[in-house]
Design a binder for these strands. Structure first.
Lengths: 340, 340
DNA sequence: GTGAAAGCGCTAACAT
DNA sequence: ATGTTAGCGCTTTCAC
């Protein structure tokens, strides 16, 4: 395979054309200080005339940086793509990077072999840092990157003692405040539909639910907890089961807004008035509430801030690659949209 | 900003460690022929022991290739992400590339400034080629890439006289065969709900519709054509309008399966039995039929082949950057799922 | 403020 | 079959 770009002008030719040294041209294209304004203009004109574009390979070989970061999505998360959650994160990442002049590139990793290939690619120096979205509990990718000492920041974490740098939402606190809210409105029979419990975020939300009940002096009832998987269907099923076991239910914390939507359907099918008889709160993972359940009370995650925080952490790791990893947990916010 | 990977072993150190010359090590890591098996083993062991990873910047500086291609998505297409259409394309691209050892990287381009930044990035030699998905009619990105003489292949085309290399589905033929199918089943009052007519694919599908009617000796009626935008809502609205104007409608060609789903809803609302009274056919852009309308007859696009063809074209352009662009139009297939 | 020179780590052509 | 050498195009001291 012989691919190449032919006769591209080099920095040297620009220098010759402008009648200056290569160092000066380099300074100009890097906006470095210490170049007389008149010289700068001459060089810029030469660049223009020759249609010069810096060779990025040469640049990163010499400078040991690439000004590019990768955002890695592992296969099961492709579905997230269309969700406002994903768009919002990518948008904020893009905005944060725009200021730094870095390129964001998405990488889809399906198999373990692709995982390995990506690590080689990153270790090969093609990116300055790596961002990981919603990594699953057993995924070794973060460890591989950490071993290679590549600046890495995850959105979310795999467990309670995650070491790799991450930005997460305060899931425990969010769940706790949601349940507390329900309690303050007089609800007493509060159930929860969890996410898949092999995911740390789901565990945290369940913990927050339990914490709030304990704090209120109520002992949580195990049969008031039903496991779902963040999907709408699982919300429907779980809610139906819960109602069968506990017809007295008057409050529900759903692990996601999608699950909440399913729960609402099941409640209405069962003849419950929402929110009059039963009040439902969900985490707004997919911003579903804004679309189809606008009146749903939700635990809002600060999506706009998450991307920015990730970039900040990554930059810090790149500046001074310390031994310590950095962790940020962003506050969630309860947005009460129904009157109950 | 000073980022770097410290003390990474270089090829030279590997050579020293293995007691061979650098050329030999280079041959080994590139799987080049002409290395004695015993030597190869020694070198591989040295690589293993030192944890050597090739510096990709140095490699592409010397070899003038990067072994990476970019898949660019322009903003309005983010929604496509979650669709089987997108997954299928990416999957086939990934498969095709796996054989070549190249990396696929996604790039999201929102604004014109990002467009420019990406071109600079690509011209800078960070990728060997560029793949573009569903480019809109007025988008200048393909031209910018073409001017920079970067191997580029688009999925779909912007107009009838597109010059940049592309892979497209035979939209005219698909629409024609769909309408012919309806005619053969005795349908005579055949309407169509188009896509946005500023998109070439939508124009083609409309043309195929008209062609088939003309061919059958029927003169198309202008009021049997309603413009939609590929969305479900537009399908509903358009269908309702069409029914009002032409209650006698007994066949519909929808420009996408999503639109078809909307049309079905409107038909059922209007008391029409589908497919008994009215038969509907849609293009399976979003593979919706497989999910919610399994009985819908569709014009299937060869998604699996499209990715492969794109890679093939791109590789050809990379091997011998000719002046001529290459165009491939893949056959579509009518999949009749209802009895009508 | 600017030029000159020394690499960055690799591939590829040429010796041997 | 393998070692040697000359760049690839840039950044970055270091002089001036």
């Amino acid at each position: 395979m012989g691919r190449q770009r032919p006769g591209t002008p080099t920095l040297e030719e620009v220098a010759a054309h402008a009648g200056v040294g290569r160092g000066t041209v380099s300074r100009v294209i890097n906006n470095a200080a210490g170049v007389k304004d008149s010289t700068r203009r001459i060089v810029q004109q030469a660049i223009e005339e020759l249609g010069y574009v810096p060779n990025l390979a040469a640049r990163s070989l010499a400078s040991r940086r690439t000004d590019a970061v990768a955002l890695v999505l592992t296969e099961p998360d492709w579905r997230v793509f269309s969700e406002p959650f994903f768009s919002e994160i990518v948008r904020s990442l893009g905005d944060a990077l725009a200021d730094t002049g870095m390129q964001l590139m998405l990488t889809l990793v399906r198999s373990d072999s692709e995982r390995k290939r990506f690590v080689e690619y990153a270790r090969g120096g093609r990116v300055d840092g790596v961002l990981l979205m919603s990594v699953h509990a057993g995924d070794r990718l973060p460890d591989m990157l950490a071993e290679a000492r590549l600046p890495t920041v995850m959105l979310g974490r795999r467990s309670g003692d995650e070491y790799v740098s991450y930005v997460d939402a305060d899931n425990v606190g969010g769940a706790r405040s949601a349940v507390t809210h329900l309690l303050s409105r007089g609800r007493r029979a509060i159930a929860t539909i969890t996410g898949p419990l092999d995911m740390y975020a789901a565990q945290c939300r369940l913990r927050g639910y339990r914490d709030a009940l304990t704090l209120a002096g109520l002992s949580g009832v195990e049969s008031m907890v039903a496991e779902g998987d963040f999907s709408e269907g699982s919300g429907r099923r779980a809610m139906a089961e819960l109602l069968e076991r506990h017809p007295e239910i008057d409050g529900v914390l759903a692990a996601s807004d999608t699950t909440a939507a399913g729960a609402l359907q099941a409640l209405r099918t069962a003849g419950r008035r929402v929110p009059k008889d039963v009040s439902v709160i969900g985490f707004d993972d997919f911003a579903l509430a804004q679309r189809t359940e606008p009146r749903l009370t939700t635990v809002r995650q600060p999506l706009e801030e998450m991307g920015g925080s990730m970039i900040r952490l990554l930059l810090e790791d790149m500046e001074e690659p310390s031994v310590a990893y950095r962790h940020v947990i962003l506050r969630t916010e309860l947005v009460a949209r129904d009157s109950t």
